[in-house]
Design a protein around this nucleic acid. Structure first.
Lengths: 142, 142
DNA sequence: TATTAAATAAGAACTATTATTGTTTAGAAT
DNA sequence: ATTCTAAACAATAATAGTTCTTATTTAATA
């Protein structure tokens, strides 16, 4: 998250450290977890109204490429991003599309991974998606 | 997969067993694994040219609802379907978007699942997505 | 300060998907 | 077998998320 970190990551690839990029990264961290491009765009708009949606999309791509953020998953046709880069999993509600972090340690997965996939593919990470119905949708308040 | 199976599933919900639906289901099984709506549409076109793309989408929805097929995952903006209903996982290539089945038994996941999620959500299934680079993209033939 | 490759804003274009509407049809009832 | 009706259909318009294009601006280096 640190800006120095970002700056050096950008510099290493001879990418420019623009105010738009900084603002978009800031917005990503201020947004509720797993924001969409549109969510980020709205937050940025508040402080930097000249930023275009296309720039937000382009910057999100760039941030994913340099490893500052990740794509959490795609829900209801929208790409949702994640600023948490550490290993964790997700719960996805099939009713409202809401995504929640699931913090469980699945050692077995990491353990069996190399032997199963090693010879055939370069596996970079693995993630579990739990599908179901979130509490809100399951027990809506009357 | 059996048509009798499909017919009864449809009848149970008072849905009609139309030739379009049968043809689309057939196409799903003839298609390479994890076809998109468009892939299915093209196959159906060959034998049943009057079928519209909208009908394919609607039917895929219906087939998911009645549990004949699943959504495997969303890759590169396209929803990919799966005729394999038994528990398995997927490998997704970040270069070409190719999806492969991963047949490993992750008991730990099923085991820890109820205690972790039980109180908070209705979890219906869980699936691992392995992200990486497939062999073709990793070692392209010269 | 001048230079230049990269980034930007604006908005058109594209693509997957969904909605609308008028017509047809599967399957139940007669 | 014929009639009936809700459901499904084809055609196509509409929508939404995302990407592309182009002319302009700017960060960072020389």
């Amino acid at each position: 998250m640190s800006l120095t970190d970002l700056e050096s990551k950008l510099r290493d690839r001879s990418l420019k450290c623009t105010p738009q990029r900084l603002e978009i990264l800031k917005a990503l961290h201020e947004a509720p977890a797993h924001p969409s491009a549109d969510t980020v765009y709205r937050i940025v708009q508040g402080r930097f109204p000249s930023v275009s949606l296309a720039t937000v999309y382009k910057t999100l791509d760039t941030l994913v490429e340099i490893g500052e953020i990740r794509i959490a998953l795609v829900s209801e046709g929208k790409t949702l991003y994640d600023t948490r880069m550490s290993n964790h999993h997700h719960f996805l509600c099939r009713c409202c599309g809401h995504v929640e972090d699931v913090d469980i340690q699945l050692d077995c997965m990491e353990n069996c991974l190399p032997q199963v996939m090693g010879k055939y593919h370069q596996v970079e990470r693995s993630e579990v998606v739990f599908h179901g119905v979130c509490q809100k949708c399951f027990q809506p308040e009357i």
